[in-house]
């Protein structure tokens, strides 16, 4: 995973709440066995509508998505994160995220920045009044800036550290391989196995 410290790109206001991962990428696009190539499935149903935000210049070139509350609820599909990243998004801003989506973002290197809803509204207005406005998401400072607006965002310290360092979770866990082996010796023998 590449380290993430700050990203600047066109902000895309998505005025929808409860955007579930089925909307982000429908199931029929999940049949690929690769980790890339999901951009054509992103928001597939909505992209059929000419007035959908990503069909409008310059939003179609956006890389910071500013969405309504409860973004990424529902299915655990990490493909939702991959589709956003394949399209070009590097950060998603919302006041609340689905738990699994938030975790998946952290693993794949997409920044899920939790911004208070009143601040999301300010960002929406700014981006709508002036399409093409660039938004900077600064992970070091935990702030979002656009024009003269600067608002804070929340992210847990551990995820922030991992993103800043670009660290891979499995590698981190394997530093504790001895602890895992020790734990395994204490598991009751009655526990089931699959083989």
């Amino acid at each position: 995973m590449d380290p993430f410290s700050t990203h600047t790109g066109i902000g895309v206001p998505l005025r929808r709440s409860n955007v579930d991962t089925d909307q982000i990428i429908p199931a029929v696009y999940l049949k690929r066995v690769t980790r890339t190539g999901f951009d054509d499935g992103l928001f597939h149903a909505w992209r059929q509508q000419p007035d959908f935000i990503l069909n409008i210049e310059p939003f179609s070139r956006g890389s910071v998505l500013v969405a309504g509350p409860d973004f990424g609820t529902g299915s655990s599909r990490e493909h939702a994160v991959w589709a956003l990243m394949d399209y070009g998004f590097r950060a998603v801003i919302a006041s609340r995220f689905g738990d699994i989506f938030r975790g998946n973002s952290a693993k794949a290197g997409l920044l899920a920045a939790e911004v208070a809803q009143p601040d999301v509204e300010l960002l929406w207005k700014l981006l709508e009044n002036d399409p093409g406005t660039e938004v900077t998401v600064d992970l070091t400072e935990k702030t979002v800036h656009a024009r003269d607006l600067t608002v804070p965002f929340l992210i847990d310290d551990y995820t922030r550290w991992r993103l800043l360092e670009g660290l891979d979770d499995i590698g981190l866990t394997l530093r504790h391989a001895d602890d895992i082996a020790t734990f395994e010796t204490t598991r009751p023998r009655r526990l089931p196995t699959t083989s």
Binding site: I100, G103, T173, L174
Partner: peptide, 13 residues
């Protein structure tokens, strides 16, 4: 439920 990166994590560790 977990995402695919976590699936890999559990498979490995």
């Amino acid at each position: 439920g977990i995402g695919t990166s976590e699936v890999e994590h559990v498979l490995a560790t």
